[in-house]
Computed example of a mutant assay.
Amino acid sequence: MGVTGPPGPVMDRDEVDRALARLGAEHKAVEDSLLALQDHAGRRLLEGAELTGTTRERWAVAERTITLLWTCFDVYTDALRGAREVRARRRWPGREELVELTDRLRGESVLVPGGAGEEALLSERFTLEGLVRRMNELYASSLDLVVTADAVWSALPARIDLLAAELGRTRSLAHSVGVRPGEHPAGDELEEITAELGLLRSQVITDPLAFWRPAAGSSAPGGGRPDTERYDRAALALEDVRREIEAVLAVRQDSEDRLLRLRDVLSRADRTL
């Protein structure tokens, strides 16, 4: 690298060593975060899922962002290695090394091919600290999507499956008392709930981000909660139908009990005649 003049006062040896230590710690933190993102269950699910709607659009952007993150990290790694090599030339660096190190550590000496943003650029220059900030921004946006999708997938499908199991038991109970679609309103409602749960589960699996409510004013990745409005409506509707069917069952059982008692009375009357 040619020496073009340092940005500001030339750093002394102690300042250089402190800067290298700090940037080395940043490098380790970024690397750990990227590896954690790579291994995140939500990212693996997104990568293998057949996505639709909002999730498909945002995941396509996130995939490009994650690729860009690794590109920036590789550039940062090379730049930090270069600065360390200059520092390792002498135990007591001379003026020339200190000027070069100041330029490497504080100047816009890091070149990212294609840029590190949404706009297509031939290249973009950063300071090492500026590149760390940019990587943190890219990481936060990618992590937010991954955490959000994972939160929806962790919460809603299991709850829908439990409700579907309860729906199956209710349908069996309805059949046992003669409540069937086309013959009783409760039977028709059970058919509607069955269709809604099937559709809801399919949409949650393919477009989880459509079922997320961001927390107002939150900038933390995954800030918010799954949107359970449709699930809650289906659960309430099923509860209403179940109570109606139980009422039908209670009436039938009461009628059967009355009939049994009547038969018992008639039987005793026959024996006394």
Rank of each mutant, 00 (worst) to 15 (best):
A29F: 12
H27V: 10
L145D: 01
G217Y: 02
S141P: 02
L131M: 05
T272A: 14
L51F: 06
G94V: 07
G168Q: 11
A164C: 02
P113C: 07
R201I: 04
G222W: 01
T4Q: 13
E189F: 00
G24A: 09
L45M: 12
D150R: 08
V265T: 14
Y76I: 02
A195P: 05
R252M: 15
L34Q: 08
V146T: 06
E97V: 08
R56M: 08
E57G: 05
R169Q: 13
S172T: 13
R81M: 05
S219E: 15
A234M: 06
G115E: 06
T272K: 13
T102G: 14
L238A: 07
Y231Q: 06
L199Y: 12
V75N: 02
V251C: 05
P93S: 11
S172P: 01
R271I: 12
A235F: 04
Q253S: 12
H175F: 10
A140Y: 05
L236V: 14
M1P: 13
S202V: 03
L131I: 11
L199C: 10
E47S: 14
A155H: 06
L209G: 03
R95G: 08
S123V: 11
M1W: 13
L236R: 14
H27Y: 15
L156H: 03
S172W: 04
I160Y: 01
L197F: 06
E189R: 15
L167V: 11
R22F: 09
G53F: 01
A25P: 00
P157N: 08
V132N: 00
P221V: 07
L173W: 01
L209P: 00
A83W: 00
S255H: 15
H40C: 06
E183N: 10
E26C: 09
G82T: 13
A83Q: 04
A234T: 05
L20P: 03
A116P: 03
T67C: 03
A62D: 03
R159P: 02
P9Q: 09
A116E: 04
V179P: 00
G198F: 03
E63Y: 01
F126V: 09
G223Q: 07
W70I: 07
P221R: 05
A164Y: 01
L259V: 12
D78I: 13
V86I: 15
R271P: 01
D17P: 05
F73Y: 14
L122F: 15
E15R: 08
D150S: 12
L128V: 07
I245D: 00
G48N: 10
Q203Y: 03
L190G: 02
W212H: 11
M1C: 07
A29P: 00
P181I: 04
T67H: 12
F73P: 00
L190P: 01
W59T: 01
L128I: 07
D78V: 13
E100N: 02
P214H: 09
D17N: 14
E85S: 11
A235Y: 07
R58S: 11
A49L: 05
G223C: 07
I66M: 08
E50H: 11
L236F: 08
R81D: 11
L266C: 12
A250I: 09
D74M: 09
A149Y: 03
V10L: 05
G217R: 07
L131T: 06
E191K: 10
E244C: 05
L128M: 14
E137N: 08
L34D: 02
A41H: 12
E239W: 09
S141D: 09
A216P: 02
S123H: 14
D14I: 10
R89I: 07
